[in-house]
Design a protein around this nucleic acid. Structure first.
Lengths: 368, 368
DNA sequence: TAAAAAAATGTGTACGTTAACACAAAATTT
DNA sequence: AAATTTTGTGTTAACGTACACATTTTTTTA
C-alpha cells in the first residue's frame, strides 16, 4: 500500500525475495519538497500538478512529471489527513436488525471500524430498512442520495431496487460497495461469500455424516423478501458436489413458507421418513431442528448463520454444522475498503470473497 | 479506541443505545490548544504537563489538569506521528520457514502489516531461528536484545529459553508479544488458539464421521523440538469431549518419531486394525494419510494446518478435516497489537484467542 | 537592595500536505 | 499605448503535536 516509511525486512538466511523487498522499501520517503527540488520548481507548482489544478506551464509540467517518475512519490496520508479539512461522509444502509437478528453483527462491524478510523475526518451515518419491504429500501436509498454522501455501503437485498440505486450512485459519482447479498448486474464492488462453494461445503459435511445410499433434502425457507437467487446458488453448489464427487445419494428440494413452516415440515417428515439429512439454505435452520426434536426424530441438520436460535440448537446437538456467513466481518471489511478508498485512494476490489467458516458445537464459542 | 473525530451513527428507529453512542462521539476534537485556552496558559505548559516534563508551577498544573478533565482530551495520533521524529524499532523472531513450511504464512502476515503501517515511523526487522535448535533461538534472542528495540514479537517455541528471553525483555522494559506456541509463565502478551478447545473440535468432527462403538487413535508426531505441551493440550481436549459428551469410543494415544514415522505407523496399523479414526496433533498429518493410502486402507484422518502436503491429501479425500491454526493471522494480529501499543498507546490484551477454523476439501480454497 | 541563579512560562519551528494569496509576466482587450 | 485579464509561479499559513530555545518571573545569594 503506502510505501513512504523507512523500514527493514531482514531475512537471516538471505532469502533473496525478501532482500529485494527490503531494498525497495528502505529508501527515504520522498516528499513533495524533494520533487520540487529535483524539478527546479516550487512546491506549489508540484501540488498543482499532483491535483490537476491547472495553472502550470508545459515545461514545468514535464519537469515535475519527470521528477515524480524518478523518485516514486507517494503522498503521506498522515500529513494529508491532518491538513485536510475535507470531511468525508459515508452513508450505510442495512436491514433493520430488529426485524431479523442476522443483521445485528453488521452494526458491530460498522461500529468497530468507526472507532478504528476515529482519528480521521470521517462522518458516518447508519440507516436501516425493513427487510420485508422493498419500498422501504427504495425510500431510504433516495433519502441517502439527497444527502449527497461521498460513499455508500448497502445490502442489496432486493435485486431490482438495488440495481436502480446503483445506477443513481454511478451517475452521481458516489463510490459504493455492497455486501452479503449478491447483486446481478455488478458493475460495482462487493464483499461476500461464494454461495455456490458454500453449498458444496454443506454437501461435503452431509456426506461425512450420512453414508450412501441415502436420501437427502434441501430445504429453502421462503422469506417475505426475495432471496431466491441466494438460495438457488447454494442448492446448485450442494447438488454439484454430489453429482461430481459421490454417488448413492438422492436429493429432494423442498420449499417452505416461514409462516406455515411447522405444519408444512411435519408433512414433509411424514411423507418422507427416509430422509436422513436436511440442508437448510437460510438462517431459519433452527425451525427444522426444533420441529425434528419435537417429533422425537434424530436426523442430520446442516444450515446457515450463527444467530442465537441456531447456536442454541447447535449446542444441544440438534444441528450438526452451521456455515458462518460472517456478517460482521463482511460489514467491517466492506466499510474499511470504502474508507481506504476515500482516504488513501486505495483501489477497490471488484469482488472480495471471504472464507466459508464451518461451525460445530465446539468451535462455536471461538466465533462469538 | 480514539474518539477524536466527528461522526454520526444514526439508527432510524431511535435505538437508544446507538443514540447515546452518537452523542458521545459527535463533540468536536479537543486539541492541546483548547486545553491551553481553558487553563489560561500556553500550549508549551500543557505539553509539559502531558509529558511530565516538569518545569510547571503547582498552580498551572492544577489548572491544566482541571481543563484536561473537563474537555476529555485525547491526543491526535495522526498529528503526533507526523511530528514525531521517534522511530520505533520492532524486532520479529520466528522459526525459519525453510525448515518448516508451516511458518511461511507468518512472513506474509508480517509483510502485510508492514505495508499497512508504512506511513508511520516504524522500523521492522524479521529474524529467523532453526526450529530444531534451542541454541539458535537463544542466540538470536540475545542478538535482538543487543539491538535494543522498542518492541519484540516472537514464537516461544522452546519453553525454557523463551522464559529466559521474556525475563530479559521485562527487565529492559521492552514491550513484547508471543504468538502461536503458548508459553507457560505468561506474565506477557500472547496471540494464539485455545488448544484444549481445538482438541475438542477435532473430537466432535471424529464423532460425526465414525459412529460408536469404535476405536480411535491420537497420534503425536514428535518433532526434533519439544512442543509436547502443545500436543498434550490437544489430547486433553480431545479426550475431554469423549468423556463428557459421548460414550462407546475407546481412545489410544500413540507417539511416533518424525524420522521413523513410516515404519512405526505401519506397525500401528498391523497391531491395531480396529482403529477407525486418527486424530493427528501436528502438521505432519499428511504422513499418516499417505501411509494409510499406501497400505490401501481407508480410515478417517483429522489433523492440523494448511501446509501444502496436507491440503493435497485433503483434496484427495485422504484427510477429512484439518484444523487451521491461522499462523498468518496470528502473526499479523500480534504485530498489529504491538504497533498500536507503540503508536497509539493502545492497551495490549493478555491473551487474544483466535477462532478455530474447520477446513474440508471444499472450503479450503476460500482460506488459501 | 542588587545581582545571580533557578524556575516557570511562552514562542517558534518542524513534520508533509494543501490551498488561498500575492505578484509578476504575458496575452488580451479597450 | 494604456488598461485589463489571463496565466504561471512562489510564498505562506494552517492542521495538532513536540521540543528546543527565548523570555519572563520568582527565589536565592552576596
Amino acid at each position: 500500500m503506502y510505501v513512504n516509511t523507512k523500514f527493514v525486512l531482514r531475512y537471516t538466511n538471505h532469502d533473496f525475495q525478501f532482500w529485494i523487498y527490503l531494498c525497495k522499501r528502505m529508501k527515504k520517503n520522498t516528499t513533495i519538497k524533494d520533487i520540487a527540488k529535483l524539478a527546479g520548481v516550487s512546491i506549489g507548482t508540484v501540488d498543482r500538478v499532483l491535483h490537476n489544478r491547472g495553472r502550470v506551464s508545459k515545461k514545468a509540467l514535464e519537469k515535475v512529471n519527470q521528477a515524480l517518475k524518478e523518485l516514486e512519490y507517494t503522498p503521506n496520508p498522515i500529513a494529508r489527513s491532518l491538513r485536510n479539512n475535507v470531511v468525508y461522509t459515508v452513508q450505510i444502509l442495512i436491514p433493520d436488525p430488529k426485524k431479523d437478528p442476522y443483521w445485528l453483527p453488521c452494526m458491530q462491524g460498522v461500529t468497530e471500524l468507526i472507532e478504528e478510523f476515529a482519528a480521521f475526518h470521517l462522518n458516518f451515518a447508519v440507516h436501516t430498512f425493513d427487510p420485508s419491504k422493498p419500498q422501504s429500501f427504495s425510500n431510504m436509498g433516495n433519502k441517502l442520495l439527497e444527502l449527497g454522501p461521498d460513499a455508500i455501503m448497502f445490502v442489496p437485498l432486493f435485486g431490482k431496487e438495488s440495481t436502480q440505486l446503483q445506477k443513481q450512485l454511478f451517475k452521481r459519482d458516489i463510490v459504493s460497495i455492497t455486501f452479503n447479498s449478491p447483486i446481478k448486474d455488478h458493475f460495482h464492488h462487493h464483499v461476500g461469500q461464494d454461495l455456490f462453494l458454500s453449498g458444496r461445503v454443506g454437501a461435503k459435511l452431509v456426506s461425512g455424516l450420512v453414508k450412501a445410499p441415502s436420501q437427502l433434502a434441501i430445504i429453502h425457507v421462503e422469506e417475505a423478501y426475495n432471496n431466491a437467487a441466494h438460495m438457488q446458488e447454494k442448492e446448485n453448489g450442494f447438488r454439484s458436489y454430489f453429482q461430481e464427487e459421490e454417488t448413492g445419494y438422492d436429493i429432494k428440494t423442498l420449499t417452505l413458507k416461514t409462516k406455515e413452516i411447522r405444519e408444512q415440515f411435519d408433512k414433509v417428515v411424514q411423507t418422507h421418513p427416509e430422509i436422513e439429512a436436511y440442508f437448510v439454505t437460510t438462517s431459519k435452520t433452527y425451525e427444522v431442528a426444533n420441529a425434528l426434536t419435537q417429533l422425537g426424530i434424530r436426523k442430520a441438520v446442516i444450515g446457515y448463520d450463527l444467530i442465537p436460535n441456531n447456536v442454541s440448537c447447535l449446542q444441544k446437538n440438534q444441528i450438526q454444522f452451521l456455515i458462518h456467513q460472517a456478517p460482521k466481518k463482511q460489514a467491517y471489511l466492506g466499510l474499511r475498503s470504502l474508507v481506504e478508498k476515500l482516504l488513501f485512494n486505495k483501489e477497490l476490489a471488484k469482488v472480495e470473497l471471504l472464507p466459508i467458516d464451518i461451525i460445530n458445537s465446539e468451535n462455536v464459542k471461538s466465533y462469538l
